[in-house]
Amino acid sequence: MIRRLTKNDHKLLFSLLKEEPSFNLFIIGDIESFGYDADFQDIWGEFDENGTLNAVLLRYYDSYIPYARTSFHMEAFAQLIRQTSTSSFVLSGKSEIVEQFEHVLPLGNKRVTYFCECQTDKLATGTENIDIKKATLDDVDRIIALRQSIAEFTTTPRAREMLAKGLETNTSRTYYIEEDGKMVASASTTAENSLSAMIVGVCTEEAYRQKGYASAIMKKLIQDLISEGKTLCLFYDNPKAGNIYKRLGFRDIGTWTMYL
């Protein structure tokens, strides 16, 4: 049986989602932020004959994320997506789950990234003598300017709005390092919730690289978030970058697939 979930299902839902808090950080964050009654968001659940919740599908505007711990009725979830989406929608999630939809839905361009998580701060040491600051709303324009100055980064038209919104709602934070009053390196979280957080926007201005700034900021984020009982996670598609994260305590847990 598949039905739309309500606040009465919250305990049951989170019992399922907590089994893999990193893979479920977007679902957890959206439910904690917007609940079960927002007109732009739905969460459906699939139950077995014993009333056990085995799978869920989140709709956030025109973005969909399925999650399941066992086999599930993929065709029924696909039908829900057809009924509630526009002609252009985004499907993303744990690769082995979302790739089951490839032959039944008109999906966009496929992108697969490595997915890793960190649950320890044992390797995040050596930041005591570095002045790492926490950004406020007054720093939003400087953060965006730093990202735009870096060739590897692409900033979207809504980047400033989304960054400010995250700071206002405490669903993101940014740490940074300055030299002579200039922001030269930063890293952020997004989709922060009670269980997990995603690391994004790790960057250093080219003239200030090879000084360990990005690693120091990452260590600070790891220390603070682990102390709050949260799991950190991130996407990467460059194995070289992946090795840097692994030296800080991250480990691969699978891949994430997105259809745009």
Rank of each mutant, 00 (worst) to 15 (best):
M1D: 12
I2M: 13
R3E: 08
R4P: 00
T6E: 13
K7G: 11
L12G: 08
F14K: 05
S15P: 07
S15N: 14
S22L: 11
F23A: 05
I27E: 01
I28L: 11
I28A: 07
S33R: 12
F40L: 10
G45F: 04
E46Y: 04
D48I: 01
N50S: 07
T52G: 06
L53I: 09
L57M: 14
S63G: 09
P66G: 08
P66A: 08
Y67C: 06
S71A: 13
H73R: 11
M74R: 06
M74D: 05
F77L: 10
F77V: 07
I81M: 12
I81Y: 09
T84I: 14
G93Q: 03
G93P: 03
Q100H: 06
Q100Y: 03
Q100E: 12
E102L: 12
V104I: 15
P106E: 06
L107W: 02
L107A: 10
G108L: 15
K110T: 05
V112S: 09
T113F: 13
E117Y: 02
C118M: 10
C118E: 02
C118H: 03
T120S: 15
L123T: 03
A124Q: 01
D131E: 13
K133W: 12
D138L: 13
I143Q: 06
A145N: 09
S149K: 06
A151N: 14
A151C: 06
A151P: 02
F153C: 13
T155G: 09
T156L: 11
T156D: 12
A159R: 10
M162F: 13
A164F: 07
T171N: 14
S172Q: 05
Y175G: 03
Y176S: 02
V184T: 02
A185N: 01
A187N: 02
A187C: 10
A191G: 07
L195A: 14
G201R: 00
C203W: 03
C203Q: 05
T204L: 07
T204K: 05
R209N: 07
G212T: 05
I217D: 01
L221F: 00
I222M: 12
D224G: 07
L225H: 14
L232P: 00
L232R: 03
L232T: 04
C233W: 04
Y236E: 05
P239Y: 06
A241N: 09
Y245C: 02
Y245I: 01
K246R: 13
D252S: 08
G254M: 01
W256Y: 15
T257N: 10
